[in-house]
């Protein structure tokens, strides 16, 4: 089994829910558990939110390509965009043991993705970022 769903969105926050819902629906049609759908939703939402919120130096319209591939015992999620280069490996790790006073408000998004996914591969080529997330069932 290798089923694919290709989607494209504009760099607008409200687009995220639509694309997450399309993938969730595709997963439900293929009997993927709600728990897996939740982690997929979270990872995709976090990365798209980061790209759209922080990734562009201009106010122009940009397109982001998303490819979801379902295999027998894992899925991959590829996100390709022309935002500024970002490598999730370089994101600082938040101190999740800090008390409330010492807690930083942000920086949890990438940390959640790293915890929810089994593999994260990032590359940049010809002005395009490509992120491949893999999760085993």
């Amino acid at each position: 089994m290798n089923k694919q769903l290709n989607l494209q969105i504009h760099n607008k926050i409200p687009e995220i829910e639509r694309v997450c819902e399309s993938i969730a629906e595709f997963c439900r049609e293929h009997s993927i558990s709600d728990k897996i759908i939740f982690s997929l939703h979270l990872a995709l939402d976090e990365i798209l939110t980061n790209i759209i919120t922080y990734g562009y130096s201009d106010q122009n319209d940009h397109l982001i390509d998303i490819r979801y591939s379902l295999h027998n015992d894992y899925f991959t999620l590829e996100i390709e965009d022309d935002s500024n280069p970002y490598d999730p490996a370089n994101a600082p790790t938040p101190d999740v043991n800090a008390c409330l006073e010492d807690r930083k408000i942000g920086g949890l998004g990438i940390y959640l993705i790293k915890n929810m996914m089994d593999e994260i591969k990032y590359s940049t080529k010809n002005g395009k970022n490509k992120l491949i997330l893999t999760k085993k069932f």
């Binding site: 976090e46 939110t49 409330l100 807690r103 998004g109 940390y111």
Partner: peptide, 14 residues
């Protein structure tokens, strides 16, 4: 809930 939600809750708690 995503980190954006956690962010608002953390801000309020602080």
């Amino acid at each position: 809930i995503s980190s954006a939600g956690l962010r608002v809750l953390l801000g309020a708690a602080k």
